[in-house]
């Protein structure tokens, strides 16, 4: 039973500071995730499978794979983050934890940020860790793999942050999964463009520091705006149900 393995939110008194509260939310999400390990593995398996489809579906030629490998890995990572987003608030919404979270004295955006960071640690980071192996399988050279990992490291938190807005907006709706993709994919396009563009620039030997800085700017922007939008969306979705 899912309810048995999910620890409740520890009662946080109003005296508890912001950071302990965020840490509590973060630790709880991590603990819950490790009790349902399959949910952690699924996006990773999906990631590997999508990457496998390209050599099979398009061409196993070394030249093609080397050229489009970075794009394939980025698209696959984007899709698997998208797939995992449905879980971000869903369980908490179903068992009522989310309403408790909204009622906490700490500002909701901070708690949402803690949840999103936990989501990234649990899905985005493993994807980055897997990337070198898959990078070798699509014949990327060492330098490209390093740059690719770096862009994914900066880019996947942006995916989680933007995605959290979509997850909050579609919470409790029928066919939320498809709707979530419809809303979020257009917003992912800049990250995708710069993620793959940086690797392409690196393989041509041009300097990439500027592009990485720009992706960092995306991350900072998402970090400062997305939690507020998600928190607002969460309140709307909760008042809806």
């Amino acid at each position: 039973m899912t309810t048995d393995v999910r620890p409740g939110l520890k009662p946080v008194e109003s005296g508890v500071g912001l950071f302990p509260a965020m840490a509590a939310v973060f630790m709880r999400d991590v603990r819950v995730a490790f009790r349902q390990r399959q949910d952690l593995l699924n996006p990773l398996l999906f990631f590997i499978m999508v990457v496998t489809l390209f050599p099979l579906g398009v061409s196993p030629e070394v030249e093609f794979l080397r050229q489009s490998g970075a794009g394939i890995l980025w698209v696959a990572a984007l899709l698997s983050v998208l797939l995992s987003l449905d879980h971000l608030f869903r369980h908490d919404f179903d068992d009522g934890t989310l309403e408790q979270l909204v009622l906490q004295p700490q500002p909701l955006f901070a708690l949402v940020l803690a949840k999103t960071v936990a989501h990234w640690i649990l899905t985005g980071l493993p994807l980055v860790v897997l990337t070198p192996i898959l990078g070798i399988m699509v014949h990327l050279d060492g330098n490209s793999i390093a740059i690719l990992c770096l862009t994914l490291l900066i880019g996947t938190p942006v995916l989680s942050l933007i995605g959290s807005i979509g997850a909050a907006l579609t919470l409790g709706l029928r066919s939320a999964g498809v709707l979530l993709s419809l809303l979020i994919i257009p917003l992912y396009i800049p990250v995708l463009i710069f993620g793959t563009g940086t690797v392409a620039a690196a393989s041509e030997g041009s300097p990439v520091a500027g592009y990485l800085a720009l992706m960092g700017a995306f991350l900072v922007l998402a970090l400062t705006l997305a939690p507020f939008a998600s928190a607002a969306a969460l309140r709307i979705s909760l008042s809806n149900s």
Binding site: L169, L225, A232, I236, S237, N240
Partner: peptide
């Protein structure tokens, strides 16, 4: 909800 989405879109 639509208002939030439109705003997120316009920032993007």
């Amino acid at each position: 909800a639509v208002a939030v989405l439109v705003l997120v879109g316009v920032v993007n």
